[in-house]
Write a protein that binds this DNA or RNA. Sequence first.
DNA 1: CCGAATCCTTGAAGATACTG
DNA 2: CAGTATCTTCAAGGATTCGG
Lengths: 113, 113
Amino acid sequence: MENHDKQDLYLVCPYVTAQKVVAGKWAVVVLHHLSGGTLRFGQLQRLMPGLTQATLTKQLRALESSGLVRRQVYPQVPPRVEYSLTPIGQAFRPVLDSIAQWGEKYIAYMQQR
Amino acid sequence: MENHDKQDLYLVCPYVTAQKVVAGKWAVVVLHHLSGGTLRFGQLQRLMPGLTQATLTKQLRALESSGLVRRQVYPQVPPRVEYSLTPIGQAFRPVLDSIAQWGEKYIAYMQQR
DNA sequence: CCGAATCCTTGAAGATACTG
DNA sequence: CAGTATCTTCAAGGATTCGG
C-alpha cells in the first residue's frame, strides 16, 4: 500500500485515492467514532466489539500512515494512547455524513423487500 | 457476501453496510462512471484500463446483486449489454460527490509535502 | 461483443498467545 | 492498557482460455 507508480491511479483519480484510504474493513467505522472526538485505544475497542486488538491496531496504523489519524502516546504506566482525526481526517466528515444518509436509505430499502 | 447473521452489523450500522457494498476495489469508480448515464460493457472497460474483463464482470455482478446497478441484456448478435444505476444506486451520488471533493483535497494535501 | 469457467496468487482479517 | 508476534484462513483480484 506504499508504492505507487504512474500506472495506478493513486493520487490521480480521487475515487481511487479514497478507495485505497478507506479500503480497510473497519476504516469508515473508526473514522466515524473518531469524528466525535479523541478516543483512547480501549474506548475504540469497546465501541467496536467484533474486531480483535490486533485488527484494530492494524487499521489504526493504516489510517495513521494515510495521514487521517493522529496517534498520541503518553509515556505512562499503564500506557495511554489517544487517537484523533488530523485536519485532513476532519475533512472526511462530509463523506461520513453522506455515507450515513445513504446507508440508512439502503437499509430501509432492503428491509421492505 | 450473501449470508448475514445477527452478529455482524450489516443492515444495522449504515457505515458497515456501505463498506460491504463499496468493498470492491473498483466499485466507486464504476458507480462514478455510471452516474453519468447508461453505459455498455465495452464502454466501461475502455473507461477503466487497468482491470480485466473478468474483474469488471465480477464487480458489476456484485453491484447488481447489491441492487445498485441494473443489467439489461439485448438479445442480439453481437451481444449488447447495458448497465445503469437503479434508484438506490442514483441515491449514492451524494456520496460520490463528497468522495470526489475530499479526494481532491487529499491529493493536493499529499502533493504539497 | 460480452461474457463464462478455471486456476492461481496475494494479502487482509482474525485467532491466539505473550509483553513492557 | 495497549500493544507485538505468529499462524491460519479465505476470498478478492487477476491472468488466461474458451464460447455463443
